[in-house]
């Protein structure tokens, strides 16, 4: 009989054991600084604040009742979802042709240069980029003064700053590479001979695109949708700088609860609710997407 210590020592010499040992520092760090805080925030969302750092004993649903019944929070949540949804649709629709162009229209040796050019703006200061959108969209901004100079408009357009539109434009700009890259990767994986086969069998260019390219690119599009939708719901800087009073989102309220009103439990509740709603939408989207793709395969094409 081997002792437990002996067994463990043997295990950590196998490939599996070495792998686990190697990943453990990184995994432990994520456990301590991500899992524990996420659990903590869920727990705190069930508490009620009594002092600066004191909570009333016992768990309660008071915060959830308040968060769900107060029309202000409900409106902020709905608006955040609407903004995230619009940003996702706009970003992915604008991104698809770019990804398609780089994958199918650019010489192989120039592809990485294009991808690099697309990602560069993403690596520059987010704060500065958002602020510049304020300069572009403002009353005397670049866009308005430009359009006036050309004579397209007489009065500055006011519907493009300090409202939801400005937030959507700015976020669509910020998340562009996140949408382009997954679609590009999916398009790159497509075996080009499928497209030739389709053409040889008499399908037109458009039909080949719709019936071969698009279904094969679907995983990339699904990834792009999720990678844009999930983080945008929690954006703080863009609504704060270009959103105005009508463009604030749930993250701004979470910040107010934590840093200004000193009501961490309610802030935690709003954060948990936002994540829950996003998770549910993401899962439903994934299931629907998976069904659609699976159904297509089973049904066969033509």
């Amino acid at each position: 009989m081997m002792t437990t210590g002996e067994k463990l020592r043997r295990f950590f010499r196998t490939d599996q054991g070495v792998g686990l040992l190697l990943v453990s520092p990184t995994a432990l760090y994520a456990l301590l600084l991500l899992a524990v805080p996420l659990i903590a925030i869920v727990v705190i969302s069930f508490l009620t604040q009594t002092g600066v750092r004191d909570f009333a004993p016992g768990l309660s649903l008071v915060n959830y009742k308040e968060a769900l019944s107060d029309p202000l929070y409900r409106e902020l949540m709905l608006r955040s979802l609407m903004v995230s949804g619009s940003v996702t649709v706009v970003t992915v629709l604008l991104a698809f042709p770019i990804a398609y162009f780089v994958s199918f229209g650019v010489k192989p040796e120039q592809k990485s240069l294009w991808i690099f050019l697309i990602t560069i703006p993403f690596w520059t200061s987010y704060l500065i980029r958002v602020f510049l959108w304020k300069v572009i969209l403002g009353y005397n901004g670049v866009l308005n003064s430009g359009l006036k100079l050309v004579g397209i408009i007489d009065e500055p357009l006011t519907f493009i700053l300090y409202n939801v539109n400005a937030v959507i434009i700015t976020l669509a700009h910020a998340y562009a590479p996140f949408a382009i890259l997954p679609i590009f990767v999916a398009l790159e994986k497509i075996d080009r001979s499928y497209l030739e086969a389709s053409r040889d069998l008499g399908e037109s260019r458009t039909m080949t695109f719709l019936r071969v390219t698009l279904p094969l690119a679907a995983p990339g599009v699904v990834a792009a949708v999720l990678i844009v939708f999930i983080p945008t719901i929690g954006d703080y800087v863009t609504p704060k700088l270009v959103g105005g009073p009508g463009g604030t989102m749930i993250a701004n309220m979470i910040q107010t609860q934590f840093l200004r009103l000193n009501n961490a439990p309610l802030g935690a509740t709003l954060a948990v609710l936002a994540m829950l709603i996003v998770a549910v939408i993401a899962i439903v989207f994934l299931i629907v997407g998976y069904r659609a793709a699976g159904g297509g395969k089973k049904g066969g094409r033509g």
């Binding site: 994520a30 991500l34 805080p37 903590a40 705190i44 719901i233 929690g234 993250a251």
Partner: peptide
């Protein structure tokens, strides 16, 4: 799980770390 912060909104990471530190 290790890759999760890539998609998690940063404000969630920020407030959850804040509550633990204060607690």
């Amino acid at each position: 799980f290790i890759m999760l912060p890539l998609v998690l909104p940063e404000i969630i990471v920020a407030v959850s770390l804040l509550v633990v530190i204060l607690k």
